[in-house]
């Protein structure tokens, strides 16, 4: 089963209760992975409000995940 690292920041970090975790998952893409994690951990943000980064590059929510990927779900940003 592919092993994926998931990183959390800001509201997602608080709702998950940690900054990073390593998961064995068969979810094929970030959209499916987020849906599963949201159901498990009660994330309040809808998937459509998020962006995602894979290995520190912006990516699509339907990009295929592969073993060793680092996935970061990015809540709506608020810099400045």
């Amino acid at each position: 089963m592919p092993k994926i690292t998931v990183q959390y920041f800001a509201i997602l970090r608080e709702q998950r209760g940690l900054s990073e975790e390593s998961l064995d998952t068969t979810e094929s893409n970030p959209a499916n992975l987020y849906a599963k994690l949201a159901a498990q951990h009660g994330f309040t943000l809808p998937s459509k409000s998020l962006r995602v980064a894979i290995n520190d590059e912006f990516a699509s929510m339907d990009q295929s995940l592969k073993d060793g990927d680092a996935v970061t779900f990015i809540a709506p940003v608020a810099g400045g």
């Binding site: 509201i11 608020a78 810099g79």
Partner: peptide
């Protein structure tokens, strides 16, 4: 630059 930073850069505020 200010507008783009506010809309695109992964920084969050509480």
């Amino acid at each position: 630059i200010v507008n783009e930073v506010k809309s695109r850069v992964p920084i969050w505020k509480k």
